[in-house]
Design a protein around this nucleic acid. Structure first.
Lengths: 294, 294
DNA sequence: AATTGCATTTTATAAACACAATATGTAGAT
DNA sequence: ATCTACATATTGTGTTTATAAAATGCAATT
């Protein structure tokens, strides 16, 4: 009944912040600064720091505040005691997608049906359904119930999506406001190189998919135009669901990553038009080869 | 506490259907057909027809069903007895936008604050806020409260929006799936002609704005790609709020409508590339000249 | 064979409530 | 002057409930 606490999330944010800004052991961690940075009040920051104190990452000094008690470099890949949540909405969201794609759910379903099927309280189900309808693969019927749209299951939608992506990304790159983000390019080059040099064989499907998306979103972010970036994000959310079920053809990955690196080369060479044109064929090529199992 | 009835809406739909399909006085109106057409069960169709019977538009014959009792051409511009609702969420939605643009609302507001300010029950406020956040001009803060984004008030957002629109529309027209919808073009040509021949002086601001949007959305719909159409719709929803407060420069309208008609001419001539290029400059021209009062 | 009319079941909404989390004012420590 | 610590006020979420609307099954009618 109470709302879920921000504490775990904020705890993670603080650790990220500490690492990103390269704070050192013993540095002071002022409440208000974090409150402003994370756009919350001081209260949840306090809770988070208290939690971190228990974990020994941070040390409290009475009336003086909290201080970093360890070297940030010794902090592993975050989320150590994130443990016992699991209670996000994602699992249900994915189950619905899966059950739809595998035909376990009909075209039309009522809310109560879904509540019973997944054993959910109404509130949670509704949150998920709202998210889904925002992504466009289910919609409320005027009376009772919900209907699936063809977005997830039709070949045409799939192809239209690729056409849209190819154009959005290409055109974003050609905008006059486009400006290469050096830092972002460096990180992307790094990831893609690792992926090329063996990662394509060992990384998990989810990791590969994420690396790919981050690459493309980084490029579009350089356009400095929120509308382009937002529409790419929107369509990628859909894509994730559809392609999640496609077995990755790992043999194609080296070629793909090489192409990614070529695009970065062209951009850093200042040959933006060529990069944009190449990006377009790169995306359309990917769309042509894979085919969702429908 | 009960949910609001579909009856008024369905009543309107039935009238629209009757007009669109040119039914004649005396024609039978089967329940199931309407139920299928409107994706609801027979129950709300029944209610709607009973209401129409009271209004005399329709006549019931026992155990045989409902029959059209008047000539559809005698039905005025729909919504005659729509009267006493007014209770949609739109008014509040617009007031929030207005109060924001005019500076009456701060960057950050809590839900309860808004409930008191507009004297709303929580449920309704939340519905509106969800809609707003979907459109992207407010967002939930991690803790309590909501924040306005710059989408509504920054010049950059405004210009980025125009750049996005120009490209979406131009590129939609260049897609291989693009196919002119004869019927749509005919209607658009009709509207634009009337607007040019005097309408620009007499139509209301809202009417002019709507005619303009419908023109552009019709063009993009011809691309047969939902993703393009959906992103145009999305951005137009925002545009409506911003430009609602700009005094229309009516002297510019004739030029604008002439350009619209030129685009249609080019398309019907099969000169699609030229049409697309012209469309692009047409949109960018509109974006350059107007400036939102911020 | 198709469609209505009605009785019954199922559904979703809005408002109220309870309570933990978040926000905030301020005294006091450094 | 700044920041914490704590006490107090405010906020928003999940649950529950009452109720009208929507969906549905089926006998009766055409």
């Amino acid at each position: 009944m109470p709302r879920k606490s921000l504490t775990p999330q904020i705890t993670g944010n603080i650790l990220d912040y500490v690492k990103a800004n390269e704070l050192e052991k013993g540095d002071h961690l002022p409440l208000q600064m974090f409150a402003d940075a994370f756009r919350v009040s001081r209260a949840p920051i306090m809770s988070a720091l208290k939690l971190l104190e228990i974990q020994g990452v941070v040390k409290a000094e009475s009336n003086r505040g909290y201080f970093l008690a360890v070297d940030p470099r010794d902090l592993g890949a975050a989320e150590p005691v994130n443990s016992a949540d699991d209670e996000g909405d994602d699992p249900i969201y994915f189950r619905i997608a899966e059950d739809r794609v595998s035909g376990k759910l009909e075209d039309r379903v009522s809310e109560n049906e879904l509540m019973r099927f997944y054993d959910l309280p109404r509130t949670r189900l509704l949150r998920v359904l709202r998210r889904i309808s925002e992504e466009g693969w289910m919609e409320r019927l005027p009376g009772n119930g919900w209907a699936f749209t063809p977005a997830l299951t039709s070949k045409k939608s799939y192809e239209d999506g690729y056409a849209f992506r190819a154009i959005i990304e290409q055109q974003a790159m050609l905008l006059p406001t486009f400006e290469l983000n050096i830092e972002g390019v460096k990180r992307a080059r790094d990831v893609q190189t690792r992926l090329r040099d063996g990662g394509f064989e060992t990384w998990s499907r989810a990791e590969i998919f994420r690396a790919n998306n981050e690459f493309h979103e980084m490029l579009v972010a350089c356009s400095q135009n929120e509308f382009f970036l937002e529409s790419l994000r929107r369509i990628n959310r859909l894509r994730r669901l559809i392609e999640y079920h496609i077995t990755i053809d790992r043999s194609r990955l080296p070629k793909q990553t090489v192409e990614h690196l070529q695009i970065l080369d062209l951009l850093e060479d200042g040959r933006r038009n060529e990069a944009a044109a190449f990006l377009y064929t790169h995306i359309m090529g990917a769309g042509r080869i894979k085919t969702p199992k429908i």
